[in-house]
Each structure stands twice: as C-alpha cells, then as structure tokens.
Amino acid sequence: MHIIVCVKQIPDPEIPSAKFKIDPATKKVVPPAGVPPVISVFDERAVEAACQLKDKNGAKITVISMGQGKVADVVKHALSMGADDGITLQDSAFDNLDSYGTAHVLSKAIQKIGEYDLVLCGRQAADWDSGQVGSILAEMLGIPVVTIARNIQAADGGLRVERVLKDGYEVVQAPMPCLVTVSNEVGLPRLPTGMGIITATRKKIPAWTAQDIEIDPAQVAPEGAHTEIVKLSVPIRDVQCEIVTGKDAGEAAVELAVRLRAANII
C-alpha cells in the first residue's frame, strides 16, 4: 500500500493568547518570535494513522508539504516518526494560496507522484481552521473521500474507516484509492525514535517547484483565488473576572457559592 500524507507547517497553535499577534494591514499573523513552527496537529495524527497502517499491513509512506522557508522540517518530523519519503512544494507562486489553490497544487504533486492507494490529510489545518483542502483535493483527484476519521483499517481490499459523528460514529467501507481526513481520535502521535531521527536527517527531500508539477503560475494567481480575506482582527474581550477570595481556599469556595446564589445563577 502506498500512502501519501499531506502535512502543513504552521505557527505553534498552543502559544498563550497573549503572545498571539497580527498585522491588520497585511491581514497576516505575525509568527511569535523564538517559537519554532510545528507540524499541524491533525496532520501529525494523519502521519500516526499512516504509521499504524504500516505497522499492521506494511506500507510505503510519502509525505508532502507545501510551504515556505523551513517547510522541510515538518517533512523530517514525519520521516522521524516512520514515513519513508518526503517532498516539499516550494515556489513563490504558492504563497498565500486559498484552500482551492492549495488543493490544486497538492493534486498536481500527487499526480506527479503517480501511483497511490490512500491520501491522508488532517481534518483541518490548525492555523486557519478551514477544514476544506482534503475534500476539495479528493474531488479534484476524482477519488472517494471519508472525513473526520477516528480509526482506519485495511479490510476487504479497501479500507474500513470509523467517522466521528455528533453522537457517536459511523463505520464505512471505502475502496482504494481514496482520501481520508484524520481527527485526533486516531490516537496520540508516536514520538520519533533515535533511529528515526538519524534516518530523517540523512534523507534527501526534493523540493518541487511550480514548473516541476506543471503548474502555470497564472493558474494560482491571487486574482483567480476563490476566496479572499478582507479583514483580520483580534476580538476584544471585555469580561471583568470577579476573583472571589477568602482566608483559605475553602472559604473562597463557600463565598463563591454564596455570590452565585445572590446573583441568581444557581
């Protein structure tokens, strides 16, 4: 089985809110100084899901990531977890693409890779939280898609996938090739092993440009984007928290109950 996993590099989403900064003029997020970017949370789970399939059934895992600068770092991270090959997609034509443009670039890269049985994406990228690229990509590739998976098993020549629903889950049988978007329920990502890190460091990671995957920059030009961000702001929170105190924790707790009662909340 050949599994392609799409991973994105993002600013660390778990930094304290106080450190989060934007530039409203350019409508961009200012990456926090000194905090290295990370692999998007659900994409790391997608790598984990791919590794689980590899452990059980044997598979080759290829990781692809479109991005700028040190985007190879997230590919290396996936390699150190157990992926076999990695490719980055780097071209100034790929900067600031919307979901549709991103899916287009990924679809071209996947077509160049050629043979595959399964494409994995995260359920959503943990920066812009869109949750679109996986499904659009599947439509472009003309393959079935199963979204928000919590478990993926090889079965009956295809895949048996559990999808997270509001009040439970659904078990579906999908043929291959197909695309599955992965949720955190597949399990915590494995830690890279020492051996994995060494292999990852030595591995050559080709960087494909627009030309390599036959994309005419005009195809992904900003004027043609399907969506445009017209404003970016930081919401103002104006809640004043009333800190309830006492001579010790127990007394503060009693006082809290009394105040909630007085305010008719309980």
């Binding site: 009333e242 309830v244 707790a253 009693v254 809290l256």
Partner: peptide, 23 residues
C-alpha cells in the same frame, strides 16, 4: 480568568468539596 465572570484561584481538590458543601 480572562474570559470568566467569577474565579477562584486555588487547588480544585480543596475548593470543590467546600463549594459543594455550601451548594
């Protein structure tokens, strides 16, 4: 505490029993 209306700073293991008792 930046989004809450009421807060108590402390260990929940001490706070919850007293809170529930009073409740």
């Amino acid at each position: 505490f930046k989004v809450a209306h009421y807060g108590v700073v402390g260990d929940f293991k001490e706070i919850l029993p007293a809170f529930m008792g009073k409740l």
